[in-house]
Design a protein around this nucleic acid. Structure first.
Lengths: 143, 143
DNA sequence: CTAAACCTTGAACCTAACTTCAAGGTCAAG
DNA sequence: CTTGACCTTGAAGTTAGGTTCAAGGTTTAG
């Protein structure tokens, strides 16, 4: 299988396949007489593995660690559990932050919409009082 | 005011101040005889404006657009409203995606936790059946 | 037999918002 | 009068996950 076939089979660009090989996520494949990379079905599996692990939010570095563990003869599931647990925490924090921002932004937008008409020719100057924009200058600075 | 004073007054590193100047977010300041940048209180205001706009989730590029509008004599509030509106939409989508992933990851983690004990010496091999890790290889590929 | 469509490599480029570095000038304290 | 803390510039490095490019070799269809 040439790199384009692997690319099609796994839905990953050839450039990305070569990139993964450089990162050590894929083994260096066999070569044809003309130095073309030759792949087998195990490589399709490996690429799919990487795609799935990415879907779980794992970084390429983390995926590399799992692969390395397995290559060293250890089942990487305990490690995986720790990674997933850590990602869950990060996700919770990130969601909380985004929701807080969303809430703030929504209030802010209502405020803006109530004071500004959609008419582009309206005298917004009356409302936008500030050095650059009073609506921004009202924003609190901390947090 | 020297750059370090502005830096302290606004809580922004001197390197970032020079960076903002290059981006056009801050006007080129006056210079001392030795070419040191000299700032006034308006620059403190401007930097605080930038910090506040960043708090609203605006990019430096967007902030630059607002500043440019004001410099051109137009109140940038309508533009701001559009930016905030667009960011709200993006935020909603991002939150929805993260929540879906969180849900999936939580289920996945329960599954993992139920089958793996915390005992590092446990025979995880029994459970982790797969080329690299059966738990990952079960993950669905699409979406 | 030639032109298109591949393949190879290493290096450079991309985003965003900075930070760091190198090499040099300035200024205040002791 | 020197040491150390600052200032200047332009360029390069950072992160992550790739993509694009240049220059060259190969393979295949017509």
């Amino acid at each position: 299988m040439l790199i384009r076939d692997l690319s099609r089979a796994a839905g990953v660009p050839a450039s990305t396949i070569r990139y993964y090989e450089r990162l050590g996520l894929l083994q260096a494949p066999q070569r044809s007489a003309a130095q073309y990379r030759l792949y087998g079905t195990a490589d399709v599996e490996r690429l799919r593995f990487i795609q799935k692990a990415k879907r779980l939010g794992l970084s390429l570095t983390e995926i590399g660690q799992l692969i390395a563990l397995r290559a060293g003869g250890t089942a990487p599931c305990q490690q995986l559990k720790a990674m997933v647990s850590s990602h869950l925490q990060q996700l919770d924090q990130q969601i909380a932050e985004l929701q807080a921002l969303r809430q703030e932004l929504a209030t802010y937008h209502s405020n803006l919409a109530a004071q500004l008409t959609d008419d582009a020719t309206a005298p917004t100057e009356t409302f936008c009082q500030g050095t650059i924009c009073g609506f921004i200058e009202q924003v609190s600075y901390d947090a």
